[in-house]
């Protein structure tokens, strides 16, 4: 083994590079691309087109349960999708019931509606009349099931403590009265919504998910448990492109592209090093290099 490491040379260095090089390169590349985006072209996936088509089925006055099942950290990833989707909701004049699945959610409405101010002003979209924020809903199974079964037994006031009586939410008895669930998720209560709203009442559900959870949601999409999926920041950027409203998503796509390419380069370097090193030593199977 010692002899082998002596023989490694440049190949060994390539095969066993310090992971801190990956951190440094990724940090520098992403930071530079975010500060100085050059606006490279992007491809639009069929998945995002299908998401847009699903939102287009909504009519004016439809009731949508918008569940912000994300922490603030997750919001930073989902922001393009959240903004683009809500722009569509406002333009269509759907009624929104907004809930958060995390205590940090209390900081989200001021931030999100500040970004949407142009749309809410243009379409005269007002709190209490067009949208009601019911606030924090405990994201566990029992709480979601309870809310789905008897909405008004669990929600009597909005997030500011004002009664929801007299708003469009009077029409809601149980979750089956919603026309759509629009979920933005880091994984908090999404499965519970599928179990207790989609399966129980057959309400269509669209999901905007963080990247790491997308493979799991793809299975839900394929099985028809959710009707459309918007994947991470990239999906949000594509939706921004489709509705012709550039925002934070499209701005970050250069960083996305270069981040992925840099990772590919590290994989290639590692494999060249692995091949060269183990070939030279003639003991590839005995190295156990990770």
């Amino acid at each position: 083994m010692n002899r082998m490491s002596d023989e490694g040379g440049i190949y060994k260095k390539m095969a066993t590079y310090d992971k801190r090089w990956v951190y440094l390169a990724l940090f520098a590349i992403v930071l530079y691309s975010l500060i100085r985006p050059i606006g490279m072209p992007i491809g639009i996936s069929a998945q995002t087109k299908a998401y847009k088509t699903e939102l287009d089925t909504l009519q004016e006055g439809d009731l949508v349960f918008s569940t912000w099942n994300m922490e603030f950290s997750g919001y930073m990833e989902l922001k393009p999708g959240v903004l683009a989707t809500h722009k569509i909701f406002i333009e269509k004049g759907v009624k929104l019931c907004i809930a958060f699945g995390h205590f940090e959610g209390v900081a989200l409405p001021p931030e999100i509606f500040k970004q949407l101010k142009k749309w809410t002003d243009d379409y005269d979209y007002t709190e209490g009349e067009d949208y009601v924020i019911i606030g924090y809903v405990f994201p566990n199974e029992a709480a979601v099931a309870a809310l789905a079964q008897d909405f008004h037994a669990n929600v009597r006031v909005d997030w500011k403590g004002q009664s929801i009586e007299g708003t469009f939410l009077d029409e809601i008895q149980n979750a089956g009265d919603f026309d759509m669930i629009s979920d933005y998720t880091t994984g908090l209560a999404t499965t519970n919504l599928i179990n207790h709203v989609v399966l129980q009442y057959g309400v269509p559900m669209v999901v905007n998910s963080i990247g790491v959870s997308v493979p799991g949601h793809l299975a839900n999409l394929d099985a028809g448990l959710i009707t459309a999926l918007l994947a991470s920041t990239r999906g949000g950027a594509e939706l921004e492109f489709l509705i012709n409203s550039p925002g934070p998503g499209l701005k970050s796509m250069d960083a996305f592209t270069f981040g992925h390419y840099s990772l590919i380069i590290f994989i290639i370097i590692g494999n060249i090093g692995h091949y060269g090193w183990t070939r030279r030593s003639g003991a590839r199977e005995r190295t156990g290099i990770r």
Binding site: V22, G74, N271
Partner: peptide, 24 residues
Amino acid sequence: LSSVIYGILAFYMSSAGARAFRAR
């Protein structure tokens, strides 16, 4: 603070992925 901890995840996943993808 919580966004930073979440962001660090990308670095861990990249380095683990880069190390794991070897044509052995």
